[in-house]
């Protein structure tokens, strides 16, 4: 089978985020480019968080999937600019997150310095939909998540934080 840019993206669409296995690396927005030269494939990836330990695993998964799809050589390059933002995640990916029990990210703050006394609008509970929720901590089980608690259904839940 001859690989094309489209077929490479199709394959990448089956490579899931190891921490959030319902969305693919394409949906996550970290695939910045892919080029095909005969049987050789180059994929450019941008990291989510600087220290995210899943990045290396993601690179291995990308390599394995493309080799399995017929590539003879796979180069995975890293780029830092433009910096990854959760704004690159489309509506479908957000709905998948919600169905999986993770509140999708809101819009990322643009520019400027940090607002120290930010009053966040409450994040809707992914289980019962209530907006009567409270932020427990902006740092959660992985670099990309915050912890909330729903006051209505009493369920703690993760939020994929906007960055």
């Amino acid at each position: 089978m001859t690989l094309t840019r489209e077929s490479v993206y199709e394959v990448l669409g089956t490579v899931m985020d190891p921490e959030v296995p319902v969305i693919s690396v394409v949906e996550l927005g970290i695939i910045r480019d892919a080029t095909v030269d005969g049987d050789e494939v180059s994929v450019t990836v941008t990291p989510t968080y600087s220290g995210c330990p899943a990045m290396r695993e993601i690179e291995d998964d990308i390599r394995t999937a493309l080799l399995k799809a017929g590539a003879t050589k796979v180069h995975v390059n890293t780029t830092f600019a433009p910096a990854w933002t959760t704004d690159w995640m489309g509506p479908e990916a957000r709905e998948k997150l919600r169905a999986y029990g993770i509140a999708p990210p809101g819009r990322a703050e643009q520019g400027g310095l940090v607002t120290l006394t930010r009053r966040r609008s409450p994040v809707a509970c992914p289980f019962c939909g209530s907006s009567d929720t409270r932020l427990q901590s902006e740092f959660g089980s992985t670099a990309c998540k915050a912890i909330h608690v729903c006051n209505s259904c009493r369920q703690p839940f993760d939020e994929f934080k906007a960055i």
Binding site: P47, Y49, S50, A81, T85, V114, L116, R118, F139
Partner: peptide, 30 residues
């Protein structure tokens, strides 16, 4: 924040990326 717009492309890219994370750190420690 200043380095993110400096003239050294490699450093500016790293600074822009880290800045997003450090804003979360600063809010937390504040």
């Amino acid at each position: 924040d200043a380095l993110a717009s400096c003239g050294h492309a490699g450093l500016a890219a790293i600074a822009a990326k880290s800045l997003k994370e450090d804003k979360y750190h600063l809010r937390h420690s504040s």
